[in-house]
Nucleic acid binder design. Structure first.
Length: 271
DNA sequence: CACGGATCCTGATGGC
DNA sequence: TGCCATCAGGATCCGT
């Protein structure tokens, strides 16, 4: 499931294998979030030239356009020699000369959209408002702090919105704010420069570590309970309501912000 | 225009 | 066991 690190790890898992492949057939299952925006047969004969990532979107470059793939809340991609029939939640399948790309997405919040080019209206509508890449050079502490000044809503909501920086999902929003010692309810515009710098560092550290770990999310780690050899990646606050803060022992608080759960420590995270 | 809330959909889980 | 309510890692759209 799809936080930025998992999207990136998914990309890395098949980009080399699929690049150069020619599309042979495309099959659609039930409707995803948006229509694909072309006749699937138009994809046949096109060549996959690359697979890139922008935020949580995968950009599958074709000889005659590109496919924007989003995994939503519950989507996952597989690439290989698919011999089995389409499953109940397989809603997109692309047979190529090098293997088959499949999207499995029970909740169908994901999408596969064809765009004629990266600057087309279709692509611009989906990618145009995205903030900077958290692991790229453009994401500096100074620019981050400056951007936060213009946002009146809570810092947690600002992180989730992805208009300043992409890739911080609901889990990592709580975790990075804990690492930075910032209360999730603080208005973004009130965050001082040194605190913005702490948050900037926390975002890069957490996302970098997750990518290096193969995209495994904190959620998956905590549900893989029992003897973990991966203690260092256990959530500090996420999904730990009422449990003792790992730093100070105070019970972790749970609130809701914009219909999403937020977890934090009242002692360690200052407004 | 910036913000907060409703919304898309299915499945897992917990209370009664 | 079943039935119902609630919640789930996302992001757009709509009303104020």
């Amino acid at each position: 499931m799809p936080e930025l690190p998992e999207v990136e790890v998914t990309r890395l898992s098949f980009v080399e294998k699929i690049s150069g492949a020619q599309i042979v057939a495309v099959t659609m299952g039930k409707a995803l979030r948006w229509p694909i925006g072309c006749n699937p047969s138009e994809l046949c004969g096109q060549t996959v030239t690359a697979v890139r990532r922008r935020g949580k979107y995968l950009l599958v470059d074709l000889s005659g356009g590109l496919l924007l793939v989003h995994l939503g809340m519950s989507g996952s991609l597989s690439f290989g020699q698919c011999l089995s029939a389409l499953g109940k939640h397989d809603h997109f399948e692309m047979l190529t000369t090098r293997g088959t790309l499949r999207l499995n997405d029970p909740r169908r919040f994901g999408a596969v959209v064809f765009a004629s080019g990266e600057t087309s209206d279709t692509a611009a509508k989906l990618l145009g408002r995205l903030g900077v890449e958290p692991l790229g050079d453009e994401f500096s502490a100074a620019v981050f702090h400056q951007a936060l000044k213009s946002k009146k809503s809570s810092i947690k909501q600002v992180l989730l919105a992805g208009e300043i920086v992409v890739g911080v999902g609901n889990i990592y929003a709580s975790e990075t704010l804990f690492l930075a010692g910032i209360r999730p309810t603080s208005r973004a515009c009130t965050i001082s420069k040194p605190r913005a710098a702490s948050l900037h560092a926390a975002i890069r550290l957490v996302l970098q570590t997750a990518v290096a770990r193969g995209g495994s999310t904190l959620k998956n780690f905590s549900s893989a309970d029992g003897e973990t050899g991966h203690f260092q990646l256990e959530a500090a606050v996420y999904d730990r309501a009422g449990l003792p803060c790992r730093t100070c022992g105070a019970p972790v608080k749970s609130i809701r912000q914009g219909q999403r759960s937020t977890f934090f420590c009242r002692t360690c995270q200052k407004p």
